[in-house]
Amino acid sequence: MQITEEQILEWLDAVKDPEIPVLSLVDLGVITDIDIDDHRVRVTMTPTFVGCPAIDYMKQDITDVLNSYGIDHVDVEVSFEKSWNSNMITDKGRKALKDFGLAPPPKHNLIVDIDILENIECPNCGSTNTVLNTPFGPTACRSIHHCNDCKETFEQFKPV
């Protein structure tokens, strides 16, 4: 069977972000290149945050999943050549985040200002009558907000 890039991406849909188990690495946008050379597959990925502690788990998960489909030679390379920004999260990924209770990052022009962290849509009730509590949350990629309508505190996958 000839392996295609589409096929690899379909298989990699099973590899989730260890900190957000509903979001696949493909939908997160961190898989930046796939190079197939006969039965050897090289996957290039880029971290969401430089200090992301989950990167080694992700590399191992990618290798394990592709091994399970009979690809014995898997190289996972971490590169900053195509660096990640939160606009790279797919629409499917944004929906998965919202269903998980985590507000998806607003699309931005790559110049993140404090303004775009305000009035984030509450993933619980949909209100935008919300305030930023702190730009730092339980993981490097999340901020903490409060909804003035449903009174819930929620997290956002922050725009970078």
Partner: peptide, 14 residues
């Protein structure tokens, strides 16, 4: 506490 811890993680990672 969380802010300085998060920034620590970022900086050590960098």
């Amino acid at each position: 506490d969380i802010a300085f811890s998060s920034m620590a993680q970022d900086k050590v990672g960098q």
